[in-house]
């Protein structure tokens, strides 16, 4: 099956049609996507700002990383799930959108970020309580940059013809 016919098949599914053509599903999913950006963003910012020493410096790093982990994961799950459903509604438009592919490339870098920094930074944050390593600061800075890049490229999708 070619890519184009796959995308056409996706758009012909009941789920895709319902999201695309109903009055409410698309804006509601868009609203959930935005709210989960704020939820995930808040949790991500709290963790990254602590690693950078810009917020909550009175608390040990491990305290912050561990406490925010659950909500951070929940926010991430929500943002990805709502994003997938939104993409399911109009895959052909996204396929032609350069901003969408930039966003997907950045999303792949999020995976690379996890592979590179997970073991050294996030898996055992207690090690950072004595002092935040350069690697951890780099992880936090990269995480903030990727997050900002995802927001900008995501927003630009709506402006691609």
């Amino acid at each position: 099956m070619s890519i184009v016919s796959t995308l056409e098949w996706i758009e012909s599914t009941d789920l895709s049609t319902a999201i695309r053509e109903g009055a409410l599903p698309y804006p509601i999913l868009g609203g959930i996507h935005l709210l989960s950006i704020a939820l995930f963003g808040g949790m991500l910012l709290a963790t990254d700002l602590r690693l950078l020493g810009w917020a909550m410096v009175r608390r040990p790093v491990s305290d912050i990383v561990q406490q925010f982990r659950g909500w951070k994961r929940f926010g991430f799950l929500l943002v990805v799930a709502s994003g997938l459903l939104l993409a399911w509604a109009e895959p052909q438009k996204l396929y032609r959108s350069p901003s969408f592919w930039i966003k997907m490339a950045l999303f792949a870098l999020v995976g690379v970020h996890a592979l590179v920094f997970r073991a050294g930074v996030y898996a055992d944050p207690a090690r950072l309580d004595k002092g935040v390593t350069t690697q951890a600061e780099l992880a936090a800075a990269m995480s903030l940059i990727l997050w900002a890049g995802l927001i900008v490229s995501g927003r630009l999708i709506a402006f691609d013809a």
Partner: peptide, 17 residues
């Protein structure tokens, strides 16, 4: 608009915490 999104993620995100 993207800056607006970052602004509300920062404000509403920290308020939500």
């Amino acid at each position: 608009e993207s800056l607006h999104f970052m602004g509300f993620a920062l404000s509403i995100g920290t308020i939500a915490i």
